[in-house]
C-alpha cells in the first residue's frame, strides 16, 4: 500500500458530509435512496454521472439539488439539436475596443456541470462535452484551458427510443462512471412530493452543506480505502462474465473494472468502513456496468435489458473468499498490451 489507510476521523467526516448531502437532497426528492447513493458514490470516486429516465421523474432536480448542496460553481447546459460545440466549451469573441480576441468560457467551466438531455444534441456537440469530461481540459483556438477541480458532469438523458434523440455511442457511454435510473416514485413518496411542492420550489430552500475543498478531501479519502484481493477478484469475475455472456454483444472494458472498484471504495467510505466489501461491489455493479454493455440481438428481442443481465450475472457469480491466482492480473495486462 503506497497510501496510508484513511483514519477513523477521515471516515467519520465522509460519513457525516455524505449524510448531510443526502439529507439535503432528500428534502427535495423523497424515496430516491439508491439513486442518491449511486450519485454520491460516483461523486466521491471522481467519476461522471449519467441519469437516464423518462421525462419528469426528477433527474434534473436531483442534479440541481446536489449542486445546490455543495458550495460550488454550477454550469447548466440544455442540450438541443441546434446546440453548437462552442456553446458548451466557450468561444473567442472579437473585441472592437482593443482589437483583440477574448475567450468567453462556456458553461462547462464550472465544478458541477448539469448537462440536460444530452442525447438531444448532435453527436458533434456531444463529443465536445465528452472529450472535456475525459481530459478535464478544453482546447479552443489552439489554447488548452484546464477545467476547475473537482469537476463533475451530471448528464441526464431520455431513453433512446424517444423521439428526436441521438443515442450516445458505446464509446461515449463508457466515459460515464455510472448510470442511475431515478424511476417513478412510490405513491407515498409522491404524496410527500405534492405536499412539499405546495406553493414553493423546495430547491430554493436548499442550502450548501459543504464546499469543494471538503469534497476534494473526501475524494482523496475514498481513494485510499483498502480493497482485499478477494474483492478485486470478485470485480474481475463479474467483468469477465460480461465478456463471455452470450446475451451480450459487448462486454465491460478494463476501465469498467477500475471504475467499479473506485465506486465501491467510495461506497465503503460513505458507510464509514476503511475496506471494501463485496456488498459494495454488488450494490454498484448494475449502475457502473449496465450502461456500457450492448445486448445481443436475441436478448434485445427477448426484451432483456443490460440491467437485467448484469443483475443475473451478479446473482450467479460466487463471491470469492480469496484471490485465486495472483498471476492472472499481470497476465491480463500482458494480453491487453499486445
Amino acid at each position: 500500500m503506497t497510501h496510508p489507510l484513511p483514519s477513523p476521523d477521515d471516515l467519520a467526516e465522509v460519513a457525516e458530509v455524505t449524510a448531510a448531502i443526502r439529507h439535503s437532497i432528500g428534502s427535495v426528492l423523497s424515496g430516491l435512496d439508491s439513486a442518491i447513493t449511486s450519485t454520491l458514490a460516483t461523486v466521491l470516486a471522481g467519476g461522471h454521472l449519467l441519469m437516464e429516465d423518462v421525462p419528469g421523474v426528477g433527474k434534473t432536480t436531483l442534479a440541481r439539488a446536489f449542486a445546490a448542496s455543495v458550495d460550488c460553481s454550477v454550469g447548466r447546459i440544455q442540450f438541443t439539436p441546434d446546440l453548437m460545440p462552442t456553446d458548451v466549451t466557450g468561444v473567442s469573441v472579437f473585441r472592437s475596443d482593443d482589437h483583440r480576441f477574448e475567450f468567453r468560457p462556456g458553461p462547462i467551466f464550472a465544478q458541477v456541470v448539469i448537462a440536460d438531455e444530452i442525447n438531444r444534441a448532435s453527436p458533434k456537440t456531444q463529443s465536445a462535452l465528452l472529450e472535456a469530461m475525459q481530459e478535464r481540459a478544453v482546447t479552443v483556438d489552439g489554447v488548452t484551458r484546464r477545467l476547475p477541480e473537482p469537476f463533475l458532469v451530471v448528464a441526464t438523458q431520455n431513453p433512446i427510443d424517444m423521439e428526436g434523440t441521438y443515442p450516445l455511442p458505446e464509446a461515449q457511454r463508457d466515459r460515464f462512471m455510472s448510470r442511475v435510473s431515478v424511476g417513478y416514485p412510490q405513491p407515498r413518496d409522491e404524496m410527500a412530493m405534492l405536499d412539499s411542492h405546495d406553493g414553493t420550489d423546495p430547491l430554493d430552500e436548499v442550502r450548501a452543506v459543504t464546499d469543494t475543498a471538503t469534497l476534494t478531501r473526501l475524494i482523496d479519502v475514498a481513494r485510499r480505502i483498502y480493497a482485499a484481493p478477494a474483492v478485486k477478484q470478485h470485480i474481475v469475475d463479474l467483468v469477465a462474465q460480461t465478456r463471455t455472456e452470450t446475451a451480450l454483444r459487448l462486454g465491460a472494458s478494463p476501465r469498467a473494472s477500475l471504475q467499479l472498484l473506485a465506486a465501491a471504495k467510495a461506497r465503503a467510505a460513505m458507510a464509514g468502513r476503511n475496506h471494501v466489501l463485496p456488498d459494495d461491489v454488488k450494490a454498484l455493479a448494475v449502475a457502473v456496468l449496465a450502461h456500457r454493455l450492448v445486448p445481443s440481438t436475441e436478448a434485445r428481442l427477448a426484451g432483456r435489458g443490460t440491467q437485467e443481465i448484469v443483475r443475473a450475472i451478479v446473482e450467479r457469480t460466487a463471491v470469492p473468499t480469496e484471490a485465486r491466482d495472483a498471476a492472472s492480473p499481470s497476465m491480463a495486462t500482458v494480453a491487453n498490451g499486445s
Binding site: M1, L5, Y226, A228, A230, N274, H275, T321
Partner: peptide, 8 residues
C-alpha cells in the same frame, strides 16, 4: 468472516 476476508 467479512473482516477476515476483506478487512486490512
Amino acid at each position: 468472516v467479512e473482516s477476515h476476508r476483506y478487512s486490512p
